[in-house]
Simulated scan of single mutants.
Amino acid sequence: MSRVIKRVPAEYVTEQIGGGVICPKCGAGNWKRTTPEKCPICGTMEVPDPVRYIKRRIPGYVEVRCDCGETVICDGFTNTCDRCGKDYNWNGTLLAPRSQWGEETGETEGDIILGV
């Protein structure tokens, strides 16, 4: 019986973008300094680069121990075991065999594979 061995929830991280000083002419920048000086490349006066913060989502995933012993990482809509070919959904639930997919809706296996 397959079982979930690990759940990693999605998380949001705050990242800093910008900061330091940047040359408006050549684009060279120094992210360690905050006071403008003359650009060592082109001699133009550098300008402060404003600090901005963004939130970025890091998606979660589920690890499942398949019946065959292989570990399957479920991070997409359908996740297939490389060893035995069993399919799992994003939550780590074992799906019906592919031969049964579309039985309720009248789809064929070709329709499912082609995404029609």
Rank of each mutant, 00 (worst) to 15 (best):
L114T: 13
I73R: 10
Y61T: 04
W90H: 08
R56T: 14
S99E: 14
G76F: 06
N79S: 03
S2K: 08
G85R: 08
S2F: 05
R7C: 05
G106M: 09
T44W: 00
C42N: 07
V62P: 00
T14Q: 06
E63H: 02
V8T: 13
Y53Q: 14
A96P: 05
W101R: 14
P97N: 12
W90M: 10
I113Q: 01
T71I: 15
T78S: 09
L95N: 05
T105A: 08
E104M: 12
K32A: 14
R52A: 10
I17N: 02
D87V: 14
W31N: 13
C39E: 06
I41V: 15
G27I: 12
V21A: 05
G27M: 09
E15L: 15
G92D: 01
Q16L: 10
I41K: 13
E70C: 07
T34N: 03
A10F: 04
Y12K: 15
F77A: 09
V72M: 01
E63F: 03
E70H: 10
R83E: 11
D82H: 11
G43S: 08
C23Y: 03
W90G: 00
R33D: 06
V72L: 03
Y12C: 09
E63L: 11
N30F: 10
M45A: 06
R3V: 13
D82A: 15
M45R: 13
C84F: 02
I22G: 04
E103G: 05
E107S: 10
G18Y: 06
I58F: 03
T71W: 00
L94M: 07
T80I: 13
T14A: 07
V116H: 06
R33P: 00
G60I: 08
E37A: 14
A28G: 10
Y12M: 12
S99R: 14
T105V: 13
E46F: 02
W101S: 10
G19R: 08
M1S: 13
Y88P: 00
G29D: 11
D111A: 06
I112W: 01
I112A: 03
Y61F: 13
Q100P: 01
R33N: 05
N91R: 09
G19V: 09
E11K: 14
E104A: 15
M45C: 01
I17Y: 04
G110H: 10
R52Y: 04
R98C: 06
N79R: 03
P48T: 13
G106V: 12
K25H: 05
P9A: 12
K6N: 08
K6R: 14
A28V: 11
T80H: 01
I58S: 03
N91E: 15
I22P: 00
P48C: 10
K6A: 12
V8Q: 01
D82I: 09
A96V: 14
P97F: 11
Y61I: 06
Y61Q: 02
I17Q: 07
R56M: 13
E37T: 15
T34D: 05
G29H: 11
T14G: 02
P24G: 11
M45Y: 04
E70P: 01
K55W: 00
G85T: 12
P97V: 13
Y12P: 00
K32L: 13
P59Y: 05
E109R: 12
E70K: 09
P36W: 01
T105W: 04
A10W: 00
